[in-house]
């Protein structure tokens, strides 16, 4: 039983890490540029497709990863230059409409180019199979790799934001955009850089999702909503908040899914417990968001 709890914790952390890669970009873009970018999920999808197609062609993990990052990064820069950059001074409704249109356009284009059949990425042989972490605790190697990569990226972002000049500007931008501009910083270049970084992170999440999930049109929207929830929980513009918020959301979602029906079965019969349990567990993360909005509306991990 204890091993089951440990395994579910690992599952929750792994899910949280994927959410973090998505929400880190989202929170920066929203916090610094004030843009609600619904098309962030599309960048995740583009990263996944680029990696999947290259992996199928070459069979190389490294090339696939590079393709995923580059694909999403280039797509992100194009979006920024062609569309998003015109939206900075518009209100949120315009941004939502424009980026929602981007979702539709990108999804339809992907359908035309690669079709509706989901793509499946072969598991890299190096990471296939599972390892015994503790007696009775067997865990897929690939998911451990995902957790590892996420932690490394988290540490890298921490260093970038807290220890470098660019990071200082990013932090300053998140606090007061006008002041940064007034101090003579080329805010346009900073915006493009941040957007590109967010896109690359989304591409990384997408590329890593390929071997576990199926790569298909619309995959971005599934994770996008949760990523927005994470941004709200963690606090807009805070990468640190996104990290803890994502882990919290991942753990709550997974643990509720895993244990709520079992707990409810002590008080009611099987099928009712399952129905209520799965209903409640899919609400879990949103309930958390509602509580956060009530108690600490600026985010759980933001110093007020």
């Amino acid at each position: 039983m204890n091993m089951l709890v440990a395994e579910q914790f690992l599952n929750g952390i792994q899910f949280g890490i994927s959410l973090f890669l998505m929400s880190a970009g989202l929170t920066l873009i929203f916090g610094i540029m004030g843009v609600i970018n619904l098309a962030h999920g599309s960048l995740y999808m583009i990263g996944a497709y680029a990696a999947a197609l290259v992996a199928a062609k070459t069979g190389s993990v490294l090339l696939a990863l590079i393709a995923g990052l580059a694909g999403a990064g280039v797509a992100g820069l194009l979006l920024e230059v062609l569309v998003i950059n015109r939206l900075y001074d518009r209100d949120h409704l315009d941004q939502v409409l424009a980026t929602f249109a981007l979702i539709l356009i990108i999804n339809e284009t992907a359908t035309i180019l690669v079709g509706r059949q989901p793509l499946f990425v072969a598991m890299p042989p190096l990471f296939s199979g599972s390892v015994t972490l503790l007696p009775g605790l067997v865990y897929p190697v690939y998911r451990l790799v995902v957790i590892g990569v996420g932690l490394v990226v988290g540490a890298g972002l921490y260093f970038l934001i807290n220890r470098t000049r660019v990071g200082m500007l990013v932090r300053a931008g998140a606090t007061s955009r006008e002041m940064v501009r007034a101090l003579g910083v080329d805010i346009k270049a900073l915006y493009t850089l941040v957007f590109g970084l967010g896109a690359v992170l989304a591409g990384l999440a997408g590329a890593m999702a390929g071997p576990v999930l199926s790569v298909q049109v619309g995959m971005g929207e599934q994770i996008l909503i949760l990523a927005f929830v994470v941004v709200v929980i963690g606090g807009v513009g805070s990468v640190r908040g996104a990290f803890y918020g994502a882990l919290l959301a991942g753990l709550i979602d997974t643990l509720a899914r895993a244990f709520l029906p079992g707990l409810l079965r002590h008080v009611m019969n099987g099928s009712n417990a399952d129905a209520l349990g799965s209903g409640l567990s899919s609400m879990g993360v949103y309930l958390l968001m509602a509580v956060v909005l009530l108690v600490k509306p600026r985010g759980l991990f933001v110093k007020s």
């Binding site: 999930l213 099987g270 099928s271 399952d274 129905a275």
Partner: peptide, 21 residues
């Protein structure tokens, strides 16, 4: 054991851990 999953679910790690247990 009997589990109903979400229709939009793509990751089954939590369910598979229960199958194993």
């Amino acid at each position: 054991g009997e589990i109903y999953t979400r229709l939009d679910q793509t990751d089954f790690s939590a369910e598979l851990a229960q199958v194993r247990a």
